[in-house]
């Protein structure tokens, strides 16, 4: 069996290097190699969004990225969203709006929502629903998630 590949990348603002097999997805590398288990696996084929991370400024489902593709990239995971001990306004808003029940989809939703508000600080309800349609939640019916994103948008604009 051929050897592993050496990958140098940047995760949550810090240089990270790791060894992986080319068949390992970025999701597997984050969870099993690097130990960042906040990114979740729900389907492993890009349809649930639980493994959403940001890569070079664009959100992707990390199950559909190979770990070796992380070479030279900048990646943000759920572990990199809060500012030290201060929650990001979206994280705070998810808590205050009871936008999570079981919480397994929450990391993906928060990473995707942050990316939306970074690009579109004042989205309509339809724009939020459209942007988040690649993230499945089975607990909430989305109502409180949408309200949390709307609420975070207001708070971030006031800030």
């Amino acid at each position: 069996m051929p050897g592993k590949t050496y990958v140098q990348t940047n995760i949550n603002g810090e240089h990270v290097d790791f060894l992986c097999e080319p068949r390992q997805s970025l999701l597997e590398c984050l969870r099993d190699v690097i130990g960042l288990t906040g990114t979740k696996e729900g389907c492993n084929d890009g349809n649930c969004g639980a493994c959403t991370v940001e890569m070079d400024g664009r959100i992707v489902t990390s199950c559909l990225v190979l770990g070796v593709e992380a070479e030279g990239k900048e990646i943000t995971t759920i572990e990199g969203i809060a500012d030290g001990s201060t929650l990001h306004p979206i994280q705070q808003s998810f808590l205050e709006n009871a936008a999570l029940q079981c919480g397994i989809c929450t990391p993906g939703f928060i990473v995707a929502s942050k990316s939306l508000l970074d690009q579109n600080p004042d989205p309509t309800e339809h724009e939020i629903r459209f942007w988040l349609a690649n993230n499945l939640c089975r607990c909430t019916g989305y109502d409180k998630i949408i309200r949390a994103v709307q609420d975070a948008a207001v708070k971030m604009q006031e800030a």
């Binding site: 969870r31 288990t37 995971t77 809060a82 929650l87 705070q92 808590l95 919480g103 929450t106």
Partner: peptide, 10 residues
């Protein structure tokens, strides 16, 4: 649960 710290089954 909003920071990814919670440990689930996997």
């Amino acid at each position: 649960k909003v920071t990814g710290r919670a440990l689930y089954g996997a």
